[in-house]
Design a protein around this nucleic acid. Structure first.
Length: 896
RNA sequence: AGGCGCGUAGCUCAGUUGGUUAGAGCGCUUCCUUGACAUGGAAGAGGUCGUUCGUUGGUUCGAAUCCAAUCGUGCCUACCA
């Protein structure tokens, strides 16, 4: 399960990443034969979507009020169809494999039913209530928002010091405030009860400037004596702390603002109708004129702004609906408590697990959740009011009427106009999408619900742990009694190459589709500069874009993009998206393609040794050490990949596959295979072809969860050729490591061969021999072992011939060591250069020997380190010493 | 103020329970269009070996890895009117 994208627009890189991970998991587990469901869908995103549509109407000079609620909602639905369609199209381009037949939208009938059902239940349980409370109010949108939708950032402001004279005229108190206009709603001033400066004044009255009112001086230890003047004005209707103070002291509340942020008629006439910031200016000016303004200090303060509108959020006293988070429910436990428990007892696990802290911290300090929004787009609250203000919460009007009748009311009922916070329905997603009804008998028959609740894993970004993850846990556990999912894989955010968050206003967003298909520079510029909130930014965005992508963006393809996402998915880290890395993985796709071409060239129409060995004559197949080696490494790779998937280490999955394919299969095995196909017996050739095919086919299945397209395409040919049946690679079994095929002897055999080849190449390159030129080689060592290597050596190291001797001749020729073997290229050399080269190598060996001797000379090390480590060190010392001796001897020869 | 990360090659990042010469990709240098692949191949330089993984201490026979402190940096949460 993963977050349903909002129908506010199109998918961005974060979605691309998210979906790559989710899809890789889905494909992986599906191939393991497990019953998999990736539940796709979209979210209606109340505020955000309403804003999008309103802005579109705005461009035509229409407001939503012109249209009316019903017509407006039709427009939103139109937009939803468009945006939702775009999103599913994008998902398909990303190669995702959810169960499209189960696609859901948070405002579908079924899901809406779940919303109503749970709302009614929670209300009847006393966990949803309505009340006049101070809430975060967005004056631009005209709706309440939850505290999570408010972003507080430090801004420059002022601290105004205002004198409040005592009513008896004996003195005055100076209060400090950042919001002077709210003084019109002051109902008290407060000091710390033990503050000797003010103690004697507690209980007296002050005259509130500009207003014809007297207010009391109260004592509350909430006051910080050190801050400002130690005297605080109390405005319970416009500040959350003051609200709490007001409650404690039984103060009245005076609200002085209208819902759109203007001064109302509770304030003196002079200020009525003024916009809140204009009012601030006026209040300050008047205070100054009347001599109440003592001083003005510059002050940094946190300003709360709406995350959608950016306007300053106003604490506003309004009627709203809330979910009680800490109140015990029917089972004696609060919703929060249950959510904490299922994580504490390990039923739900976070990956990486340190996110548990974040989760716990939030739940431990939780406030009741304001779930009503004064919007049109969303689930309308299932509450009906009588004319005299009584409320009936019910599934529908009929039921509400019945309740009203029982209550002795027979008049008209009006439905609450407000809608629910989007996250309310999102919190139900784990079971609402599975067609939960709340009817026990019916739900028991619902196979999907029984099968997939709880689901195995949620893949999500850390930014919505509070918004969504915690709330899903709370609601799902409380309503269904089950946890919503067992594992939560938390990933980082995708940032641009400079580590900046991608955003439309910064003009640095990338569309995953543009990386897949590529995009011309002009089109990219156009895309980034249209629909900006602030059109003035267009110029600088265009400039930056043209500089960063002078040639536009090349097409990388879905597989390369997905592989990049996977390889960057290291835990606990944000991702700086690196286009060059993507390019590297596009090349990797190309590499696989070319390797396939090679395999096809050498296997098509040939006997590939796929027949059952038992039905064939002895000697039908003869596997070489190289064949055994690559198969052995494949087993290890399979084990690594399985472990990495287990740990949600997609970066490791990608790395293991990349390394095996490129560094082992392509770089070495294909080269070995060439030799075998050229010189081998029929049985050896068959074994080689079989290995080429089978390993490639396994690679395809191994890589398929990350690279669905190229693997499927190639598998359509390679699959059948290697003896597999089935229509699609998607439904093939995922490769399982077979430990019995791990062959250490073959691995050692190849390791030595590689050492020899690398030593030859090094010598060649060091001597400046053209890669095209073939040179003769003399090699000293065990002739029997060497005889098996010569053919490979000749091909891989471009040797004209290989002469095996018991000891190297004395000649002015370059020499190198590889294991027990001594190699000499038969070429003319610059003796001085060769001496220098040997000396350098000798120097290095001497350094190593010194180190090893120091270690072994340390009694403590020999006594305390594990025997194995000591032996290893002794072995190293012996090897280094032997090599040193050989090289010194060679240097001696040259010196003569 | 609290919480969580990060700091390793020019850049982006790996480095699993402490143990050979700290790795990869990109970039860089030299050479090579050889029959899968120039979106490629081969070899190399690059981490200031003794003082290597931000710095300084500590634990240990042994530290990039564990502990403490500290600096830099990023994010989250809660905030003082």
């Amino acid at each position: 399960m993963l977050p349903p994208p909002n129908v506010t627009g199109t998918l961005h890189m974060g979605h691309g990443f998210n979906q790559t991970i989710m899809d890789a998991l889905t494909r992986y587990h599906r191939m393991l034969g497990e019953n998999t469901l990736w539940q796709p869908g979209t979210d209606h995103a109340g505020i955000a979507t309403q804003i999008v549509v309103e802005r579109q109407l705005d461009a035509q000079g229409i407001s939503r009020h012109d249209l009316g609620r019903e017509k407006f909602l039709e427009k939103v639905w139109e937009w939803k169809e468009y945006s939702g369609g775009t999103i599913t199209k994008q998902m398909r381009r990303l190669g995702t494999s959810p169960d499209w037949t189960r696609e859901r939208f948070t405002m579908d009938e079924g899901l809406s039913h779940t919303v109503t059902e749970t709302f009614v239940r929670l209300y009847r349980e006393g966990l949803i209530y309505r009340g006049k409370r101070l809430v975060n109010w967005d004056p631009k949108l005209g709706t309440a928002v939850s505290d999570l939708e408010v972003i507080s950032e430090e801004e420059d402001g002022f601290l105004w010091h205002i004198s409040y004279p005592l009513a008896d005229g004996s003195a005055s108190l100076v209060v400090a405030t950042t919001r002077p206009e709210t003084m019109l709603g002051d109902v008290a001033v407060m000091v710390h009860p033990e503050d000797d400066r003010y103690r004697h004044l507690i209980g007296k009255q002050v005259k509130l400037p500009l207003c014809d009112r007297e207010i009391p001086i109260i004592a509350d230890d909430y006051v910080d004596r050190e801050f400002g003047t130690g005297v605080v004005k109390v405005t319970p209707a416009h500040d959350f702390n003051d609200y709490a103070v007001g409650q404690r002291h039984g103060l009245t509340m005076i609200s002085i603002l209208t819902l759109d942020g203007h001064i109302n008629d509770a304030a003196p006439k002079a200020y009525q109708g003024l916009e809140r910031f204009a009012a601030r200016k006026q209040v300050v000016a008047d205070l100054d004129a009347q001599g109440f303004l003592v001083k003005v200090e510059k002050h940094k303060l946190k300003v709360p702004r709406g995350d959608r509108t950016g306007v300053v959020i106003e604490p506003m006293l309004t009627d709203q609906w809330f979910v009680a988070m800490s109140k015990p429910g029917h089972d004696g436990k609060s919703i929060t408590q249950k959510a904490l428990e299922v994580v504490a007892n390990g039923e739900i696990k976070f990956h990486p697990e340190n996110w548990v802290n974040t989760y716990n911290q939030w739940l431990n300090n939780i406030q009741d959740w304001c779930i009503s929004r004064q919007l049109w787009w969303g689930h309308q609250i299932p509450a009906w009011y009588s004319d005299d203000g009584r409320v009936y919460v019910a599934h529908d009007l009929q039921e509400a009427q019945k309740l009203a009748e029982q209550d002795g009311y027979r008049g008209a009922l009006n439905r609450d106009a407000d809608v629910l916070d989007t996250w309310y329905s999102s919190a139900l997603w784990p079971f609402s999408t599975l067609d939960w009804t709340g009817d026990e008998a019916q739900d028991a028959k619902n196979q999907a619900l029984q099968q997939y609740l709880p689901s195995s894993v949620l893949v999500t970004g850390f930014d919505i742990i509070f918004f969504w993850v915690a709330r899903m846990v709370m609601m799902t556990k409380h309503i269904t009694g089950k946890i919503p999912f067992k594992d939560v894989y938390v990933h980082g955010l995708i940032r641009d190459a400079e580590g900046q968050k991608m955003s439309k206003s910064k003009g640095n967003v990338l569309d995953p589709i543009d990386l897949i298909d590529g995009i011309e520079l002009d089109a990219l510029v156009a895309k980034r500069t249209t629909g900006l909130m602030n059109p003035k930014q267009a110029e600088s965005i265009e400039k930056k874009t043209r500089k960063e992508y002078p040639n536009g963006i090349p097409a990388f393809g879905t597989d390369a993009l997905r592989f990049t996402f996977a390889s960057l998915a290291s835990p606990g880290r944000d991702i700086k998206f690196d286009m060059q890395r993507c390019e590297g993985y596009r090349n990797f796709c190309n590499k696989i393609w070319n390797a396939t071409r090679f395999v096809l060239m050498n296997t098509e129409g040939q006997d590939c040794g796929l027949l059952e060995c038992s039905t064939q004559a002895e000697g039908y197949l003869k596997f070489s050490q190289a064949d055994r080696w690559i198969v052995s490494l494949l087993q290890k790779t399979e084990a690594d990949v399985a472990r990495a998937f287990q740990d949600y280490r997609f970066d490791m999955v990608a790395q293991s596959i990349y390394q095996f394919v490129w560094d082992e299969y392509c770089d070495w095995y294909l080269e070995f295979a060439k030799v075998q196909l050229q010189l081998g017996s029929d049985a050896e050739k068959r074994a080689t072809r079989r290995t080429l095919l089978r390993v490639l086919e396994t690679i395809l299945r191994l890589a398929h969860p990350i690279m669905p397209f190229i693997t499927e395409e190639i598998w359509q040919t390679i699959g059948p050729m290697s003896g597999r049946q089935g229509e699609t690679i998607m439904m093939q079994a995922y490769p399982q490591s077979q430990p019995n095929k791990i062959d250490e002897a073959a691995e050692n055999w190849v390791a030595t061969l590689r050492e020899i080849v690398v030593a030859c190449r090094s010598l060649r390159s060091g001597m400046g021999i053209s890669p095209a030129e073939k040179v003769p080689l003399i090699i000293a060592g065990d002739a029997t072992r060497l005889s098996h290597y010569t053919a490979y050596m000749q091909s891989l190291a471009k040797l004209a011939k290989v002469e095996i001797v018991s000891d190297l001749p004395e000649a002015d020729a370059p020499v190198a060591l590889a294991g027990d073997f001594k190699l000499m290229l038969q070429i003319e050399i610059d003796v001085d250069a060769e001496k220098a080269r040997l000396s350098k190598e000798i120097e290095r060996l001497q350094g190593e020997i010194t180190k090893a001797q120091a270690k072994l000379g340390n009694e403590s090390f020999v006594a305390r380190a594990p025997a194995q480590v000591v032996e290893q060190e002794k072995g190293r010392l012996a090897t280094f010493s032997a090599d040193l001796q050989k090289l010194e001897a060679q240097l001696q020869k040259l010196a003569r």
